[in-house]
Design a protein around this nucleic acid. Structure first.
Lengths: 222, 222
DNA sequence: GGTTCGCATCAAGGCGTCGTCAGGAAGTTC
DNA sequence: GAACTTCCTGACGACGCCTTGATGCGAACC
């Protein structure tokens, strides 16, 4: 979540309320910083004050809409309906006038997040040269045909695929798939990596996508 | 577009304004008629007054959200924030208090329609080789004849059909159909999936559309 | 060259999960 | 109040997954 406002007390109040409800909060005090923070932080919703010191709020909306469909909720002291129309038509999702009730804002945030969660869902597919992993549907296909994985096999592959390109430590894999008590059972990893390779790799004994980093962990190479 | 309000002058004003802007407008004067009109007319947005004569507006929202993600914009004379929170959390997309500015409402309508145009892609009728599920009408047909399902059976099938192609976790099914306290009663799932298969699958013991993913959940394959 | 350690592979047993059938309790309809 | 539907619960067999042990291989180190 990204909060953009130039009034420190508003930012502070929002940060406290939102953090308490489990959101992780980024903040920005002007439009330029807002666009940068949005690009780097990938927030799942943006709360934007229209009265910023550097650029017009409408331009910030347009700058965001150029590359993302993240929900934007506008906060503004202007009650004139022309402002609302302008902001909404620029691409904002909602418009709340100051002073606002915190519980109403939170409800509108929930509504916005819920909508975008529904819209999402389709595009979580990781592809390699020999197979594809659909993280949303929990499906793996190889040469077009679906490959059946057991829960443990899928648990491993999911973590590796979500961290594709990065090294994942043995301990992390063991703890997330088997639980904190199994952090040392590295034998499990060998057995299940072998099974995954047998099911997915063209040459299971010379893996190209499920790579061992000796002594450290494993890496998924798309 | 569906306009639901019991005050004729509001309905009339909206109809004129919206028709002039190219929307085709359906109207309803109470909640029962609204649900029927929504099911039959498949509007792409609903404008809903909360103060209806027959049922509570929140129930209308819930009734719609049971089978459709159509944008719902609530109109209400109540300014209390508790009302707003309740309506938004029930599934409304926006909340506008009367009296309202027509251009603001129109801007909010445009925003809602724009969002849902991006999201789209969801169909109310799911077809398989051996049966069809009509999510809007809550009906299942097999070889042209309607198959009677119990409420629990329908609850299961609805979730699976809405997530067709995707794996749905056992826990999610149990929590959404039976409630949060039943997240571990996996036996229920076995019993009811067997019943659904007996009613819908050509070979209930070799299911093709209601597939078990052992240890993880179930999947609807269209 | 021998030893040790980490990794890969195979095989087998135990046990948890799944599907199925059936019976009883609670609620609904006429 | 009887007949019916729906939901919950228990029992049981079958299958498949997880675990575990044994063995082989290669690299690093002494």
């Amino acid at each position: 979540m990204l909060v953009v406002d130039d009034e420190p007390q508003i930012v502070r109040a929002l940060r406290i309320n939102l953090s308490a409800r489990g959101y992780s909060v980024l903040t920005a005090h002007d439009g330029t910083a807002a666009l940068r923070a949005a690009a780097e932080g990938k927030p799942d919703v943006v709360v934007l004050d229209l009265g910023l010191p550097d650029v017009d709020g409408t331009e910030v909306i347009a700058g965001l809409r150029g590359w993302t469909t993240v929900p934007i909720i506008v906060l503004s002291a202007r009650v004139d309906s022309a402002d609302k129309v302008q902001a909404l038509d620029a691409g904002a999702d909602d418009y709340v006038t100051k002073p606002f009730g915190m519980d109403e804002l939170l409800a509108r945030l929930r509504a916005a997040v819920r909508r975008s969660a529904v819209a999402e869902g389709e595009d979580a597919v990781v592809e390699t040269a020999s197979f594809t992993v659909d993280l949303a549907a929990k499906k793996v296909r190889r040469d077009g045909v679906e490959v059946h994985l057991t829960p443990t096999e899928w648990g491993l592959l999911e973590i590796l695929a979500r961290n594709r390109g990065r090294l994942v430590a043995q301990k992390q894999l063991l703890q997330e798939v088997w639980g904190p008590a199994y952090a040392k059972e590295t034998h499990y990893l060998r057995v299940y990596l072998a099974q995954l390779r047998r099911k997915l790799e063209p040459e299971p004994s010379h893996p190209r996508h499920l790579v061992t980093e000796p002594g450290m962990g494993y890496r998924f190479e798309p």
